[in-house]
Design a binder for these strands. Structure first.
Lengths: 217, 217, 217, 217
DNA sequence: AATGAATGAGGATTCATTCAT
DNA sequence: GATGAATGAATCCTCATTCAT
């Protein structure tokens, strides 16, 4: 689309291609701090080191910045191999544990954490963004985990449980923690807490999924 | 929209008593649908059947309406007897189950569900409201459950687990469901789903808390 | 001021005739403190001990209160015998001195002082009030003094000066002092200062009006 | 209003340099005519030839316009050399006369006259502006004149009088005239009147300050 | 006579977006 | 490509005034 001149070699002048990312970087911080509504385009521009007008060269509207932000964050996730999870055969628990640890690790980066939080906060005013996030993240991760669990139950490695609902049992506390920590500062927000939470959580759930003893109810 | 011709509209209505609640009722719906920022005081007024100016007779500002909304919803919760939970002795699981079913039942009312969702969405712009909600709801419920679990572990009814973190394991999926259902329409939003989720969830967790066999991980 | 119920005894219900005056009393204080624009009818009503609606039983509008205020203050002035001044024959200086001392004495009462100050401040928005004040006060006092001076010059008691302009020389510093003291707190606002000012002023002006040596510019 | 057809109105004008002054010019006229409270930001904008929003590019608030107005007018005064007056030695009367004539000349410009009048009218609602005016104008001019008079009295050129109070005798009628002429249209408002007033006034006061004849107390 | 709930016009201010340069 | 001056719609809030009771 844009790139007219690729490399006027060593980069004296800021390369135009870098600009959209600089805008997104600025917006990510500001949206995270103040929310979308309370952040002005001018603040974003200033933080990104360009003029308000220039922002509109790269993004059609303020909301397009939000979209761009989420899209950029989602890209890597998309490529992440949920397929491997889905096609796994054997005891699902080590795979789940690996996935959870991956997630916990990722959430230590505030810039990563900001994205889902942003989506949550701004969902009522930006349903498209929420839908995009859902399609790209939730609609991939949750079914993959469900398939993994279904396979584990079918193969007798874990108890016979509803795969979809059990996926929520596994992911729910992690998701809730991230929200609550941000919004209410519930449970100290240190990343270490999330790790300890994951450990305790998996220990209980994995025991609860043991095939031997049938569960009540 | 609703009823076009009520009657020769009586200009003045004069029923101060009911008005604040009518305003809150209108605001609850509008905030839930459009979010706080996108809702106009005039919309609230019209929906409540009075003039913009009259709204300011009862609420000092638009934000005060939000506060009033949460405060009104929180009132009953405050009175709820968390103390009973806290002072319970014996196997905590039936008590937890009762509590969860209570919660699930309450969340079937959209007007009740709206409140925590509203708090989540508007937290960045209304930290006071978030803090109020936290103090009145979370800071009461979570410690009570933690105490219950600690007691259960001490008395050997359940496995030795971190009480606070385990509270999150228990509540997390329910909380996450409410968010995800609203924001992403993940898992159909029918109330029945929440009940099924709770059943499956508790079956796993309760099994995982069995004292006999220590868990892996 | 504050105590709503001074004397429970004889008059049970406030006599309706007293009400307008109570409103004016309240308004005088509030207008003086905050200015006309920044004072709300509700403040006046509350201070006067009645309801906002009741104020409109006595005054057609907020501006009518201002008019009423000035009219009430002007009444006594009207009755003051400027005629005596005008018809006086002889050295005008003692008469002027008496008049000035009268004025200085009157200005010690903040409620009296408030009126001209109010007129000044609100003149742009209430030209009618300004005109009323002018007609009732200035158009009576200044010509009377001018006539007095003209007579004194004609009879040789003082130097031949322009009577009208000389009136301003006499009154100007007193008027200016009242303004400046209020608006800028120039010269300490203690009433004593005004008296000292008048003394010093008259001593100079009276000397300057001595008939013997005419010293033009 | 002014000129109906300028040209096919260029939507954007782009001349940031001149704009603040244009806004002030417009505001000066409107504030002078209608007062601060009754003047709309939109009126100012329209008269200055730009949009309401653009006004806020140059001034933070409506009140900042008022401040800017007074500040702009005060600048020159600040630089005026009151020092020369203060350090003068000899008969103060010619210097006073020069100063008064300077003032009288300045007051012929309605735009200059407007400023102190504006300050007077708006003082209750803008005490900061009043204080600024006081500090920059009154607190410089009055002490300088007082010092001049004290020196004249000490050196025997004029009678022994209170310097500060005498300053008010000298300036009072001029100040009062400016107020009264504007507010009450007392004494025709023609500039010539002010000059005649000054002549008559100084002739009396200067005679009254003659050292020969001792003045009474 | 008195109340006070209700009205509704009006104005300051913000900010996403545009466009001449 | 970049700027930043300019726009104007949108909205909160105030308050003088009215009127059913």
């Amino acid at each position: 689309m844009t790139s007219a001149t690729d490399s006027p070699p060593p980069k004296f002048r800021r390369r135009a291609e870098a600009r959209p990312d600089e805008v997104l970087d600025a917006a990510l911080v500001l949206f995270g701090d103040q929310g979308f509504a309370r952040t002005t385009v001018d603040q974003i521009a200033r933080k990104a080191g360009l003029s308000k007008g220039a922002v509109y060269l790269y993004f059609q509207s303020k909301e397009a910045i939000l979209e761009g932000l989420v899209a950029r964050a989602i890209g890597p996730v998309t490529e992440a191999a949920f397929d491997r999870i889905e096609s796994f055969r054997g005891d699902p628990r080590p795979v789940i544990e690996g996935f959870v640890r991956l997630l916990v690790g990722a959430m230590r980066d505030p810039n990563v954490r900001s994205i889902p939080l942003l989506v949550i906060h701004e969902a009522p005013g930006a349903p498209d963004v929420a839908a995009m996030f859902r399609r790209s993240v939730l609609d991939r991760a949750l079914p993959a985990l469900s398939a993994l669990i279904a396979q584990g139950a079918a193969s007798g490695h874990i108890r016979a449980v509803d795969p979809e609902l059990t996926t929520r049992t596994i992911m729910g506390p992690l998701i809730a923690h991230i929200f609550l920590a941000d919004i209410f500062s519930v449970g100290n927000a240190e990343p270490a807490t999330l790790r300890r939470l994951a450990d305790n959580h998996l220990s209980i759930v994995f025991a609860g999924l043991e095939p031997h003893k049938g569960g009540p109810a």
